[in-house]
Amino acid sequence: MTLKGRAWKFGRNIDTDAIIPARHCNTADPKELAKHCMEDADPDFVKKMRPGDLIVADLNFGCGSSREVAPVSIKAAGVSAVIAKSFARIFFRNAINIGLPILECALAVDSIAEGDEIEVEPASGTIRNVTRGETYQAEPFPEFLQRIIDRGGLLPYVEERLAERIVNRFA
């Protein structure tokens, strides 16, 4: 699977209040949440972006609250992946758990300019900058996490764990 889109750049320490302000968190409806994605970082973001576009951010993306509606709003808005120098840990877990592709790559963040055409292969972590003819390699995930990512999120893993227990009970 290759993800394609334009890059939208953001700075350091983009917190979850900026990604989805709490005033919009009184719903779990992805469509509603998508309307306000990145609103307090860039109020025009959802108007400007097209499905498939990527968020490219500096260090500590998604810091602050544990609200899972933050990655949900990004995914529902049609953002295909988030590339950052680093992710705050709860956002990191949440993105993997709900199947939003995230990649850690400092070189990509420093090299990509806003509006660059980007192609990403999440399985291999390859990031291609079509505009500049450059390729960057994201940090690989530990094997344990890659298994969750390969299943598309946490719930299939949970079902496997539950099934293992039933098997063990009758073994």
Binding site: E68, I90, N94, N97, I98, V158, L162
Partner: peptide, 13 residues
């Protein structure tokens, strides 16, 4: 701190 899907998983497991 964890997210909601994490919490759902922990509630089950």
């Amino acid at each position: 701190g964890i997210g909601s899907t994490d919490a759902a998983a922990a509630m089950a497991l």
